[in-house]
């Protein structure tokens, strides 16, 4: 896929997210919208995988630690061909394979069950160790973490272990969107200097614009070439990216369109429409929705 095609796909993923959340009536908005570009890059360019054979033994493994942003993973998986797009609208419903937080045993293609924060990097490390013991040099593990999740001690236990065993077959990426449920990360529990902390733990740190396809793909590509240390990508993202009334506002962390009305927001009943319109017209840069 060209960068342009990837960008277009990411936009569709964002529209899917809005539709899913509105249909579900609950769920997280800001994180999934902010990570749509990273997930699109992973599923359509970076990962070696087979959507029609989710348990393909040679596949790369994507571990999502902050399970609450799973709507973006579901949308990217559906767009990649793992399951029909219409199943996205079953999110959070009774009997759905698309649980509110991801469950490995419910939907083929999910690699771990997550939601309770802080345990994804450790599981990714365990998977990387297993590959190492098997002498496998080709498969790669990608672990995605949120920034608020870094408050969890379990993350730093794993941050010590991965460099100890020089697990360069593992690449971690932190979604640095600067918000968590209670507010900005730096007021809830300061994380900076984030880069220096991970470097001090023995990681090779790359910082990228998490909305720039070329930078996302370039970072994962570079990570494959670095073997002396494991690589951590700090992806700077805008929470709620693509929907202006959500962008940068921590109140949209755990709420779907239509449930919250802050000063300057569209009326609740108009929010879903406004979000989809913005995405379809790229924030007014395209005049008609069908152009």
């Amino acid at each position: 896929m060209t960068v342009k095609q990837l960008e277009k796909t990411a936009n569709l993923v964002r529209q899917d997210i809005i539709k899913m959340l509105v249909e579900a009536g609950s769920g997280h908005s800001a994180g999934p919208l902010g990570m749509a570009d990273v997930f699109t890059a992973l599923y359509f360019e970076v990962l070696n995988h087979r959507p029609k054979q989710p348990d393909w033994p040679e596949r790369d493994i994507l571990v999502l630690s902050n399970g609450h942003i799973v709507p973006v993973r579901y949308a990217a998986m559906a767009r990649a061909g793992y399951f029909p797009l219409k199943e996205l609208l079953t999110l959070r419903r009774f009997g759905s394979r698309l649980q509110g937080h991801p469950e490995r045993t419910k939907l083929p293609g999910l690699e771990t069950t997550s939601g309770p924060l802080g345990s994804g990097l450790s599981q990714a490390a365990g998977l990387a160790l297993a590959l190492r013991m098997d002498g496998n040099q080709t498969r790669r593990i990608v672990a995605l973490l949120g920034d608020g999740e870094l408050d969890e001690g379990n993350v730093w236990e794993a941050a010590m272990l991965v460099p100890k065993y020089r697990l360069h077959n593992l690449t971690a990426l932190i979604d640095r969107n600067n918000i968590q449920i209670d507010g900005p990360t730096e007021s809830v529990m300061p994380l900076e200097n984030l880069r220096a902390k991970w470097e001090a733990f023995g990681w090779h740190v790359l910082e990228i614009d998490g909305h720039n396809m070329a930078e996302i793909i370039g970072a994962f590509s570079l990570a494959r070439a670095i073997v002396e240390q494991p690589t951590l990508i700090i992806a700077h993202t805008i929470p709620g990216k693509g929907v202006d009334y959500m962008e940068y506002d921590f109140h949209w962390h755990g709420n779907p369109p239509g449930t919250l009305e802050l000063a300057g927001d569209p009326p609740k009943a108009e929010q879903a429409k406004a979000a989809l319109h913005q995405l379809r017209t790229l924030g007014g840069r395209i005049r008609g929705e069908h152009q």
Binding site: V63, R104, E111, T112, G118, S119, S122, Q123, A124, A125, G126, L127, A128, L129, A130, L131, M133, D134, G153, N154, E157, A158, L161
Partner: peptide
């Protein structure tokens, strides 16, 4: 915490 979660990852990796 790391002990059991790394263990879980290794189990998913076939160990």
């Amino acid at each position: 915490q790391n002990l059991v979660t790394v263990g879980a990852g290794m189990a998913l990796g076939g160990k």
